[in-house]
Design a protein around this nucleic acid. Structure first.
Lengths: 103, 103
DNA sequence: AATTCATATTGACAAAATTTGATTTGATGT
DNA sequence: ACATCAAATCAAATTTTGTCAATATGAATT
């Protein structure tokens, strides 16, 4: 349970960078080739590659190889997983604790 | 629209650090005083203050002053807002785009 | 008004994330 | 086999985060 926080943090890292949000926004329109993403973003080739790796490893984006091109799209399951994680994180526990602490 | 990504990224920054996830986990049990959080976390006083500021500014946590003590709890609306943001980010657009790009 | 206590702020430093350019890898076409 | 192109990896520079210790602030108590 202790290290699950570390793993969960990794999922949300996908969303805490401006450029990655922009990329996700583009992918919401459907699967896109890296070359198309490059055109629309203020990023160099290696920079895009760096961010795509983070997105793919977080599970939020899927990649598909086609010859020398790589196509990316939002992963339905990955997205749903992130949403459910976030819901848990922000939903109060069933077990309430009374905190009579400082006085 | 360009800077909204920046703002959204700020919301998700709340969730991309291990310690902050731990804090949220504690707050899921109900409102807690800073002193209680301090006991349960491997953090110094200024460190806790640093993280609480990020959490509060993201809107996910609310703080309440009571004399010299500060109590923190998860914000229902803030949490719901983050979830709805994330849902949008990971849900394909209504408008599909065909991408006949590279060949 | 002086002291005490909880929390916030600051500045210095360390560690992690991001950017950039160069190089490498792997697939295609000639 | 060689040249070409897309994408990944690497290494160095830069920026951003997080930590820690010291100090400041502000409320409560004396």
């Amino acid at each position: 349970m202790a290290t699950s926080h570390e793993e969960h943090a990794k999922v949300f890292k996908a969303f805490c960078d401006e450029k990655r949000l922009k990329i996700l926004d583009l992918l919401r329109g459907g699967e896109k080739c890296a070359c198309v993403l490059l055109e629309q973003l203020d990023l160099g080739q290696s920079g895009l590659s760096y961010h795509m790796k983070i997105l793919v490893e977080s599970g939020v984006v899927e990649s598909r190889q086609e010859g020398k091109w790589t196509h990316y799209k939002i992963s339905e399951t990955g997205g749903a997983y992130a949403v459910s994680l976030l819901k848990n994180l922000t939903t109060p526990n069933a077990v309430r604790e009374e905190n009579i602490c400082c006085r």
